[in-house]
């Protein structure tokens, strides 16, 4: 009976293994190197310091063009910032509110409950300011790209001069890891462009790593809770499965 069970579930295993994921299948030929993040693997968690530095880079560099419309300033509490710090960060931004009692729209400093301020009012404005290219929203970017955070890290560190024989289109930049290699975004960060408060040297690799960590958290803020719950659920189910099998054996003992 055990062998039969194993056989049946080997079939499931085989099915799963044979299943081509569309992500892999649609596959860009470019291999994305693994950057090695704190949240890799089954038990990984977000490196809070790295994510905070990543937010700093986003705030000082990326947010000039890229929106993160799904995030609110209050979400930063999850990165270990205090309520006062979050309120202070929010108050640096001005948002449009209203209409007030006179029917007028008005500007006020952002509150923690506000969404991240968007750099452009709409897609057309964003394209107009960026040579026709649209700086994508980064809220769920690591879920929206094959390779996830590794891809972000690779992209930020993958800028180089075009190899001999490659003709670049007008206004495009060469990137080793971008599909097709021609990307409209110019290299966004350079080494030592930002200064980290905690004294971490702002090498290109470090900055890319921190931004990728921040964006991974932004895309999957539930990841740690999810994995922690998953461990408990699987342990519970394993014990329950053992009991269920013992019950089954006992009940079937007299008919075999």
């Amino acid at each position: 009976m055990v062998r039969n069970a194993l056989k049946a579930f080997a079939v499931i295993g085989g099915l799963l293994a044979a299943m081509p994921t569309p992500a892999r299948a649609a596959g860009e030929a470019i291999a994305i190197p693994r950057a090695g993040f704190s949240f890799d693997g089954i038990f990984g968690t977000y490196d809070r310091a790295s994510a905070q530095r990543g937010f700093q880079v986003y705030k000082e560099v990326c947010s000039a063009c890229h929106a993160m419309r799904l995030l609110s300033y209050r979400n930063l509490r999850e990165l270990g910032l205090t309520e006062a710090q979050v309120a202070q960060i929010a108050s640096q931004f001005t948002v449009m509110d209203g209409p007030n009692d006179e029917g007028q729209m008005f500007e006020r400093p952002a509150r923690p409950s506000d969404r991240f301020r968007r750099p452009f009012p709409n897609q057309q404005a964003a394209r107009a300011a960026n040579n026709g290219a649209y700086p994508v929203d980064l809220s769920v970017i690591t879920k929206a790209r094959a390779g996830g955070a590794d891809y972000i890290h690779a992209l930020l560190t993958g800028y180089q001069d075009p190899p001999d024989g490659v003709t670049m289109m007008e206004g495009m930049n060469y990137n080793r890891y971008f599909p097709g290699h021609q990307i409209a975004m110019a290299q966004p960060v350079y080494p030592d462009q930002v200064e980290f408060a905690d004294g971490t040297p702002a090498t290109l690799d470090q900055v890319a790593r921190d931004v990728a960590t921040f964006l991974a958290w932004a895309a999957e803020p539930e990841l740690e809770e999810r994995r922690a719950m998953g461990v408990k659920v699987i342990i519970f189910l394993t014990i329950l499965g053992g009991l269920a099998y013992a019950v089954k054996r006992k009940i079937w003992a007299d008919v075999h």
Partner: peptide, 15 residues
């Protein structure tokens, strides 16, 4: 009883 055991295995894969 037999379905219960299979169900738990299915839940493990699902989880």
């Amino acid at each position: 009883a037999k379905d219960s055991f299979g169900l738990v295995i299915y839940f493990i894969v699902f989880a």
